[in-house]
Design a protein around this nucleic acid. Sequence first.
DNA 1: GACTGTGAAGCCATTCACAGCT
DNA 2: AGCTGTGAATGGCTTCACAGTC
Lengths: 220, 220
Amino acid sequence: MKVLNVPEATVNRLSVYSRFLDQLDKSGVITVSSGEIANGVGVSPAQVRKDLAYFGEFGTRGVGYNVKDLAHHILKILGLTHPWPVVLVGAGNLGTALCAYRGFRNRGFNIVGVFDNDLLKIGKRIQDLEVLPVERVPAVVAEHGVRIGIIAVPQSATQEVADLLVKSGVEALLTFGPAVVQVPEKVIVRNVDLSIKLEVLTFYLSFRKIHSGPWTKDDV
Amino acid sequence: MKVLNVPEATVNRLSVYSRFLDQLDKSGVITVSSGEIANGVGVSPAQVRKDLAYFGEFGTRGVGYNVKDLAHHILKILGLTHPWPVVLVGAGNLGTALCAYRGFRNRGFNIVGVFDNDLLKIGKRIQDLEVLPVERVPAVVAEHGVRIGIIAVPQSATQEVADLLVKSGVEALLTFGPAVVQVPEKVIVRNVDLSIKLEVLTFYLSFRKIHSGPWTKDDV
DNA sequence: GACTGTGAAGCCATTCACAGCT
DNA sequence: AGCTGTGAATGGCTTCACAGTC
């Protein structure tokens, strides 16, 4: 899974830098320094330079980085110089929202199939797609050469859907919610858990209110 | 921001443990070991014990942890022993999905107000709530003693909404998308970025396909 | 025998500080 | 003078390994 000893945190930040650079480029900015990027995305300048240094030398000493060049280099690193067809399983509220999410299309992710097993949802149109029965997953994956699947189904169905996607040839999964899925080692899985971040907030808020000194065992 | 030198990664995992323990409890399991928790959520047993050790001693050597007890202790640590009223700004696709998301309610997050500035959305009903104009935010926040706000609006409006929430007395924000918001130091902000994780997937998929040896500068 | 709790060790990521280039 | 690129130092999280308890 590890590539080149690049910390995954670095990959995360590259995605953020990339979108920040897009903004700058649209605003007509030609050159940018690590400090300006750092400021714009909330990290340290050294962090920006170190992150980029994993992949090469993109800047000019004494000057900074050319915005267009750097943007392109990062897109290339992230594999985003060509569009990615993606399938989405789960046409509930979350699935529908994901389907409509501009942030995906902007970055080259094309949802080429939406699936559900609920007869009430099958046939419904979301954006310009018709919700198909999950049985059609293998065909659509094969037809479009899909390598990435997004799973937005109830926790109880997550594993089953993951199995189907993997069997269909999908190589990377994005899941939602707390479920942990079992997949072959070659399959890459990442998870987005909406509750975790909210609970981080309550953790800090609670502490702030209740505790003024250090936490002792008696507090818990 | 730092509390007790507890790594934020630990807080994240506690949220996951917590929901895993809920499951176990519902299945009637009485006792669980760090190894079983570790297995269930995909971390190491030592990690589980270390995470818990930040807050006290909850287990019995040679035996393990009482599921109900541990579940309750973790809820207390996370500040989830009482419900949290929450406001949600942005009634688009994502906002609507968040509003309907069971995972929030299950964990004690009650959305007590949904707001938008789009006249087409104001007045619409989502779940059992009417979408209100953003001007109503301060009143609702005050009325319910809301400390947490969720921002699900387009990037260009994020800062403005954050300002409004902070001015209304909200102390913690959850934002979506790549925007970085400026807030007073006392306000806690966390962000969920749906694109980042997808781009991590493309990063690994691209590398896998294109590179077999180490990455050299010429590749980028 | 089984499992927790924890100091110590190891590892990884971030920051520092400066040499090198423009 | 200004900014990048980078080895070295720092700091922090995770794993190890074992003493302690049941």
